Deep mutational scan, measured.
Amino acid sequence: MQRVNMIMAESPGLITICLLGYLLSAECTVFLDHENANKILNRPKRYNSGKLEEFVQGNLERECMEEKCSFEEAREVFENTERTTEFWKQYVDGDQCESNPCLNGGSCKDDINSYECWCPFGFEGKNCELDVTCNIKNGRCEQFCKNSADNKVVCSCTEGYRLAENQKSCEPAVPFPCGRVSVSQTSKLTRAETVFPDVDYVNSTEAETILDNITQSTQSFNDFTRVVGGEDAKPGQFPWQVVLNGKVDAFCGGSIVNEKWIVTAAHCVETGVKITVVAGEHNIEETEHTEQKRNVIRIIPHHNYNAAINKYNHDIALLELDEPLVLNSYVTPICIADKEYTNIFLKFGSGYVSGWGRVFHKGRSALVLQYLRVPLVDRATCLRSTKFTIYNNMFCAGFHEGGRDSCQGDSGGPHVTEVEGTSFLTGIISWGEECAMKGKYGIYTKVSRYVNWIKEKTKLT
């Protein structure tokens, strides 16, 4: 034993070699072989497995989906700052455009905790909710729209109204504003409101030439003092309507412009014939205590009207009353817009006519005020429907199939267009061939041609 100890002390290297040989010859039971080890760690190889990531292109799944990435790591994937920024906006807080917040056709661009709407022409605001041009839906104005110097929408209202708090709607500024039905039992019968379409306001006024200088022999019209197929109006439903009495009662109609003036057809009036105007009328054979009678003290036909040349060209006249009318729910003026808007309103496509005229061709006159909704007829169809001249200051309205029309005794009465609950004068009943005849239409004086003249002559002093 002493000898062994001496050998170990003198030859430590020998001992180490012996131990190493023993270990190498022993069977290893701690580690699995290569094949079995792979069965336990069965993990798919990654895209760049075996390579240094710093030297390969980034992978979106590896960089940002398996674990949260930084902007720089995302930049490695896209290799483009702009594309990385677009991805980053949604990656950080989701897609803010998912709810489609942009209105009126706006395009949404996502941002971090926010979004941006790219608005089409005519709109602005956070969600493109603000109209900035009158060309689109009248700028959301209830009545009139004008573009300011910086191309912003400025709404306005006709006389007797003021802008509401929203700067879009119009509200009454006087007790009985024009064009409004205020009798409670008839307010439910107000005709369907007309909503502004998209309009090209630059070209809204037709490029028409008034044929002022045409000389033409007097034409022989049949029954051209021209509501057939209409309905009984309720008291106060058309408070701007008046009836004219002269040699015979209810020979023509008219509309209240203001307390002192009536507008009617020029062919209705004769110099030297006494005319009485009755406002607030409903049943011409009954006294309903809503009527107001006034005498006409002055007749002003349009300066281009000449019955000797043509009885229905420039067929418009103004009547001055001896005493002002007292405005109330049964006696209310009709609204008159400017030339541009009167023309736009007419193009809405349908209007209402009213009167006490004959209820059928050569038949009896109506006792109760009649009204009828009539569609506008395109000019080409209008011209083809008659052998008589249709001037540019006239328009056609009615039904091709016949059966409904204005008729004798309705002449001078109103053709009105309702705009968001307020009625505007767009025409004056003038003439036609018979009444409600198939293929024939009622012919009306186009008020847009005469609004400046009306307003100039009827100013209240």
Rank of each mutant, 00 (worst) to 15 (best):
T461M: 12
T84F: 05
T342I: 02
N222Q: 09
D111E: 05
L376N: 05
S430Q: 07
F71T: 13
D405A: 05
R384E: 08
T342L: 04
N245E: 05
N138K: 12
W453Y: 02
L425P: 00
W88Q: 15
I15K: 06
S182H: 11
C155A: 00
A149K: 10
H302Q: 03
G403F: 10
T386S: 12
W431E: 11
C382Y: 02
E434S: 10
N100V: 07
N48A: 15
C382V: 02
Y444V: 07
Y312R: 10
S350G: 10
G432V: 07
V202T: 12
R298F: 02
I443H: 05
P235E: 07
E286M: 10
A308F: 10
N38A: 10
F87C: 03
I309Y: 06
T458G: 03
K234Y: 14
L211W: 13
T133D: 10
N59P: 04
Q408R: 11
D410S: 08
V269F: 04
G409I: 09
E35A: 13
C268W: 00
E66G: 08
L20K: 01
A308S: 13
F87T: 15
G229W: 13
N343M: 05
N42P: 15
K457P: 01
A164N: 08
C28V: 02
E53A: 09
R373K: 08
C155E: 00
G106Q: 02
N151L: 10
K39V: 07
I136T: 04
K168E: 11
T271Y: 05
H400G: 09
W356V: 10
A164K: 08
E340R: 14
C335I: 00
S114E: 13
C252A: 01
E142L: 04
E159P: 06
N59C: 06
E433M: 06
K446Y: 02
I443R: 04
L327Q: 03
S354K: 08
F348A: 11
E281H: 10
E124T: 13
E54I: 08
V195H: 10
S107G: 10
K455S: 06
S107Q: 10
V183L: 08
S411F: 08
W453F: 05
C134Q: 03
L14N: 01
N100F: 09
I300T: 04
N113R: 12
R75L: 07
S107K: 13
E53D: 13
V248M: 07
L23Q: 01
E124I: 09
N42E: 09
V77K: 12
R75V: 10
R46L: 10
I300E: 04
I454S: 01
F78S: 13
G412V: 06
K274N: 02
Y91I: 11
D111L: 14
R373G: 05
A266D: 00
G412M: 14
K274F: 03
F221A: 12
P177F: 00
L19F: 12
F221N: 11
V419M: 10
V331F: 00
C407F: 09
N151R: 10
T209E: 12
K45Q: 12
S49E: 15
P239Q: 01
R294W: 01
C108T: 00
L318V: 06
P197M: 11
T29G: 06
A233F: 06
D405S: 13
K188W: 12
D131S: 12
G21V: 15
I256L: 04
I300V: 11
S156K: 09
G442I: 10
I15G: 04
H361V: 15
D198T: 13
A250T: 07
H289N: 13
D223V: 08
W240K: 00
R62Q: 15
N295L: 02
C18F: 15
F87A: 13
A26W: 01
E54D: 13
K247N: 04
C97G: 02
A317K: 01
K137T: 11
D232A: 10
C268Y: 00
I284N: 07
K126M: 07
G254N: 01
R373L: 06
E285Q: 09
F238N: 03
H289W: 11
C117M: 01
Y341W: 13
M394S: 06
H302W: 08
D131H: 08
Q57K: 11
K188F: 13
S385H: 14
K39M: 13
M8C: 14
G439A: 04
N135H: 13
I15N: 02
M65L: 08
Y201N: 11
V4K: 14
E285N: 07
S148I: 09
A307E: 07
M6E: 05
D232R: 13
S107Y: 07
S182K: 06
L321H: 01
W453L: 00
E61I: 06
L346A: 04
N213R: 07
V153S: 15
I40Q: 15
K438A: 07
L321R: 00
A173L: 13
K89D: 13
G254Y: 00
V269G: 03
F55R: 15
T458F: 00
F221Q: 09
E53G: 11
C435V: 03
K146S: 06
Y371M: 11
W261K: 02
V30I: 13
G355K: 08
Y47L: 11
T16D: 02
T84H: 07
D378T: 05
V296L: 02
D338S: 10
W453A: 01
G355S: 05
N104R: 05
F360E: 13
I334L: 06
C128N: 02
C97K: 02
V331I: 09
L460E: 09
E270H: 06
V326F: 09
K146H: 05
K247V: 08
W240V: 00
S448K: 02
L189K: 10
G427D: 00
A9P: 14
V153W: 13
N258D: 03
G21C: 08
K459Y: 13
N166T: 03
E82S: 08
A366I: 11
I299N: 04
L52F: 13
I334D: 00
K247T: 02
C128Q: 02
G349I: 02
Q241W: 09
M8H: 11
Q167Y: 09
F196D: 14
I390K: 08
S365F: 06
C435W: 03
M6T: 13
N113I: 08
T85K: 06
P301W: 08
G105W: 04
E340D: 11
N113T: 14
P235A: 10
E456K: 06
G13N: 11
E208C: 07
V374P: 05
L23Y: 07
F121Q: 13
L244G: 01
E142D: 10
T426F: 00
H314D: 05
T342H: 03
G402C: 07
W240H: 01
V416L: 06
C119D: 02
G58M: 08
D249W: 00
L23E: 01
E420F: 15
N147D: 10
T276W: 07
L60C: 04
P12W: 06
E53S: 10
H415S: 02
Y115R: 04
T381I: 14
Q2H: 06
I428F: 06
L244M: 06
L20S: 00
